[in-house]
Write a protein that binds this DNA or RNA. Structure first.
Lengths: 208, 208
DNA sequence: TTGTCAATTGTCAGTGGCTGTCATTAGCCT
DNA sequence: AGGCTAATGACAGCCACTGACAATTGACAA
């Protein structure tokens, strides 16, 4: 952010993002045209598509931030932790700092509302899931490196990550459709869901 | 298929599907326009959109068939089996009959090629993943009913299904990018991946 | 068989996402 | 100040998709 030029670009991007999020969360994603967004910022439509590859990208930009934060948290975990435990801890502890990370870009409240829009808009949910798959691949490589394994040769890294992500997705969904929709609620939900994974996989559901 | 009218509709739909699949698998999904497809069948573009909600739906139609077959297989599992085992058996055994199910609509070879197109086309992969989520919800309800539980109250049904689906997705990906791309290869891959889930979740990766 | 009704299809016009191209503007640097 | 380059705008065009209405075609009874 040395140049005036750079600062201006930054400001344009942020303005577009804010306007998009505001419109998406109020009017809905589908019922908001790109023209609506650019009109609010007073730039040409072409400019929008120079900052965002497509409409989806603008909608998912904030989530991307949170995701990157989580991946970093996993990388920062002490190497002696077992893979599953490292993932679990990264989520639980990463939640504390997440608030600040998001707030530095947009109001957390806007982030939360956008999350609900994503979960309830088919095309956005689809894009979100695909992106999650890419993250899974990245996480698998992190885990593999921690354990000194080859991702291509050993199935386990991708498997733990897949299982973990599966649980997280169920949690997310429950969270986004539930009553208590805040960051704290998400953390406690995460913990209780992860606790139930073991029991759910064992054969005897009747004994407890 | 009583009426001539009904038969004609059926034929039009099949013709569109075949043409679409053929073009998607040879020219690629993105580089095939709907106009290309309708030109091959000689109907209006509007007609295409009367049979398929969108371009994606045509691309995913065959996979949908396989998915439905699998869900039925789960429903048919004996009630005394543990949830995870029922899911596992449904996949493994369902594979035998899958060949016939698919062949009754399109050549299996076309199905397999289409599968690779889906996995390698971002927008199709995204749509496929979203659809998988809906299937997961359906499966969770099946499992819950088998066990006499309330899906909303007990977390475990959704959790097993999520874990299982996560593993299946990893398997699919490996399969679609691997060398041996046939139905038999998929079954053996599935088995070996599911065997590794247990080991992957335990903490001690070094002891075996 | 024919006439009427309903379902299927075609045509057309239009919207919205997205891209390539080229001219214009605006910050940068000597 | 003036030339260079990056950012933007303006415009034309492609493609997916939709609504509306007219034309066609099978169904079915008189």
């Amino acid at each position: 952010m040395e140049n005036l030029r750079e600062r201006k670009k930054q400001r344009t991007r942020e303005a577009l993002l804010r306007a998009a999020l505001e419109l998406f969360t109020t009017r809905g994603y589908e019922r908001t045209t790109v023209d609506d967004v650019v009109a609010a910022v007073d730039v040409s439509q072409r400019t929008f598509f120079r900052y965002f590859a497509n409409k989806e990208e603008a909608a998912l930009a904030v989530v991307e931030l949170a995701v990157a934060h989580f991946v970093d948290a996993v990388r920062a975990r002490p190497p002696h932790e077992a893979p599953m435990e490292a993932l679990r801890q990264a989520v639980v502890e990463g939640w504390d700092s997440l608030n600040d990370v998001i707030e530095s870009v947009v109001p957390v409240e806007l982030y939360l509302r956008m999350y609900q829009v994503i979960e309830s808009t088919p095309v956005l949910l689809a894009a979100h899931l695909r992106r999650s798959m890419e993250i899974e691949e990245a996480l698998a490589r992190v885990i593999a490196e921690r354990e000194g394994l080859d991702v291509e040769a050993d199935l386990r890294p991708r498997l733990v990550v897949a299982v973990f992500s599966g649980v997280m997705r169920v949690t997310e969904r429950q969270w986004s459709t539930g009553a208590d929709f805040g960051l704290d609620a998400m953390r406690s939900l995460t913990v209780s869901y992860l606790e139930q994974v073991g029991p759910a996989l064992t054969g005897d559901w009747r004994t407890n």
